[in-house]
Nucleic acid binder design. Structure first.
Length: 615
RNA sequence: GCCGUUGUAGCUCAGUGGUAGAGCACUUCCAUGGUAAGGAAGGGGUCUCGGGUUCAAAUCCCGACAACGGCUCCA
């Protein structure tokens, strides 16, 4: 953290306490959980028992906070031994703080991962014995906390309370739910307003809004929630993205396979998925068989059945299958979000079966593929190493896990990508690299993911004959490049602001006629015929509207190239394309209509990022 | 699933106890228009659904469903 970040951090952290102070003054029975600093601000978890805070209370709380701030009170800091701290929590009827302190005393270390050491006032010296915890005191309110704080309440900068939501105590859904009050906070009023405006304007690029405006997908209540339907335009995006995803993996040796959408429950009992996820699946009933059938929620077990259908030699490995196919998961109602979380998700899935020695090379090449794909689409990714934690929800040998995690970490480090470790984020069958994109509000979305799996091949009894004649179990690498097309689109539509490059644009060219004369319409239609020969996506707008209005409509639909056709173009045979602003790569240009079509066909095939008309 | 907010025309929204509104979109007509909205007329809503209160409910109350913001979960 640099100096500015440190100061901002202290300001936000101090504001959390000031907010708690303000709440305590108006609701004396308030019980407090934790109140850490987050991106753009802070929050504090509170429990008012029967009373509930609502955003209607924000003016009261903000007013009180401002009063505290202008009171110029210093942040007073002192330490207590753990037993006195526990006594403090009891006397002040702070059961949540008491629970944390008791846990701390019992554990005797700071290693408990779900405890916010800053909030708890621990001295940050790793796993050493806790003997003392820190407090801060400000006027009439005392709280357990190490800081950092600003010296005086007047130094906290600008803030605004923005949101209130439910949050389980210590993140466990079996615990009581507290209210989480969020505030935005910045050094100055200007920066705060800048942030609030940025959030407001980001909403313009929400994929749900753009999906509606650009006519990409719809959700019909009659079909069901979390079951998006894709329009012709949206389907172009899906198909083109998938074509690219498959093309790029084909180069690595992946071959297409096809598997059905329903399967026997037994398949997933063997894979291990049923025990863990069976509750969240959609079942299928048959009058013809006694089998319990399910709509497939993933594809790995199927691909393994193809692998195991014949004897394999080490000479055959790696064997690589890919399939873009829709899976169904009965996600809980409150968990659905636009296209980012749906009940019908289309994975651009693939599975590699290889020897342990081949793991490094296989995964490294996948990481390279991820970089290439996302670079082409202009999206930034962060790598998350999703590793196991100490819980018992994972299958397979712990030593093997450690080894696998080491391999993944090594690969990511070599790749030069920014990464972080997500402890407890692993799949039950193995560790993975999750490539995280973000939506327009900066929320993380899991996109591409290579995953190592020693467990399923074992459970399915997969074998290959090694060069020493021994039968061995292959390693499986799960890999999806987009993850799911739906979630990818959620991120991509927002990242691109709906301004798709020519190769992806559902409509690449719009031809606008100046009038409705017969020869104008004929010229426009000839242009269309010609473009269609080159597989370009083109529409003619010869509606009885003004030219200005038709151009506006083309702009709103974010169409890359707009051609206005009138007397001038007909007599010269040349066109002057209007190029969407973000694609412009030079001065305005006029060229023979055939050249325009040729250049565009080329631009589309080569997945160009900007217009190539000037080249 | 949990906590909270919201649900009025295809879209964006106004209307807060007294027989439902605007802009855009759509249809028709007039205007033949040259790089971001030409003019006029018209059609379109059991005010999400189901109960309740009331002489009277889009409006108040309860419930369901859905969307949204979080939490939890995410193969």
């Amino acid at each position: 953290m640099n100096m500015t970040d440190k100061k901002l951090h202290s300001q936000r952290h101090s504001l959390a306490h000031i907010m708690a102070t303000a709440i305590k003054r108006h609701w004396p029975d308030a019980k407090f959980g934790v109140g850490p600093v987050i991106d753009n601000g802070f929050y504090y978890d509170v429990d008012l028992g029967q009373n509930k805070l609502s955003t209607d209370d924000f003016p009261i709380i903000e007013k009180e906070m401002k009063r505290i701030i202008s009171s110029n009170t210093p942040f007073d800091h002192f330490d207590l031994d753990i037993d006195s701290a526990i006594k403090w929590a009891e006397e002040n009827r702070q059961p949540y703080k008491l629970e944390l302190l008791n846990d701390l005393k019992r554990a005797g270390t700071t290693s408990a991962s779900d405890i916010d050491s800053e909030e708890l006032g621990l001295q940050s010296d790793g796993d050493s014995k806790v003997e003392e915890v820190s407090f801060y005191r400000n006027d009439d309110f005392t709280d357990l906390c190490r800081g950092p704080h600003v010296a005086n309440t007047s130094e906290v900068g600008a803030f605004k309370l923005i949101r209130i939501s439910g949050a389980y105590w210590r993140g466990k859904d079996t615990n009581p739910q507290m209210q989480r009050v969020y505030g935005a906070a910045f050094e100055t009023k200007e920066k705060l307003n800048e942030y609030l405006q940025a959030v407001e304007s980001a909403k313009k690029y929400d994929h749900r809004k753009l999906g509606q405006e650009l006519d990409l997908f719809v959700i019909s209540p009659l079909v069901g929630s979390g079951l998006p339907l894709f329009t012709p335009r949206g389907t172009v995006l899906r198909d083109e993205l998938n074509r690219y995803s498959q093309e790029i993996r084909k180069k690595l040796g992946y071959q297409n396979v096809w598997t059905p959408h329903i399967a026997k429950q037994e398949l997933y009992e063997v894979s291990g998925h049923w025990a863990k996820f069976g509750d969240e699946w959609l079942t299928v009933s048959s009058k013809e068989t006694k089998d319990n059938l399910v709509l497939k929620p993933m594809n790995c077990p199927h691909h393994q059945q193809i692998y195991s259908s014949r004897p394999r030699s080490y000479r055959d490995l790696p064997i690589r299958y890919m399939e873009t196919t829709t899976d169904y998961r009965d996600e809980k109602a409150g968990e659905l979000i636009g296209l980012a979380r749906v009940r019908s998700l289309t994975q651009d899935d693939s599975h590699t079966f290889c020897t342990p020695e081949q793991i490094d090379e296989c995964i490294s090449s996948l990481v390279g593929t991820v970089k290439e794909f996302y670079e082409t689409l202009g999206m930034n990714l962060k790598a998350r190493l999703s590793f196991r934690d100490e819980s018992d929800k994972y299958l397979g040998d712990k030593d093997l896990w450690d080894k696998a995690q080491g391999i993944l970490k090594n690969i990511v480090e070599k790749s030069g990508l920014e990464y972080y470790i997500g402890e407890g984020e692993a799949a039950f069958y193995g560790p993975k690299i999750d490539f995280m994109g973000s939506d327009v509000l900066g929320r993380e979305l899991q996109l591409a993911t290579p995953q190592l799996d020693f467990v399923q091949p074992e459970r399915f009894g997969l074998k290959y004959t090694d060069e020493d004649g021994q039968e061995k179990t292959p390693v499986m690498i799960h890999f999806a490049l987009m993850g799911s097309i739906e979630r990818f689109l959620a991120a991509y539509i927002e990242n691109s602001k709906g301004r798709f490059p020519v190769w992806l644009a559902p409509e690449q060219i719009r031809v606008i006629t100046v009038n409705q004369e017969e020869e104008t319409i004929r010229f426009a239609n000839e242009l269309k015929e010609k473009a269609l020969e080159y597989n370009l996506r083109i529409e003619v707008d010869n509606s009885n509207e003004s030219v200005g209005k038709k151009i506006r409509s083309s702009e709103i639909m974010k169409i890359p190239y707009t051609l206005v056709i009138g007397e001038k173009e007909i007599s010269s045979g040349r066109v002057s394309p209007r190029i969407r602003e973000d694609l412009k790569n030079g001065p305005d240009i006029e060229l023979p209509k055939e050249d325009f079509i040729h250049k565009l066909a080329h631009e589309s095939e080569n997945r160009a990022k900007v217009s190539t008309l000037n080249e």
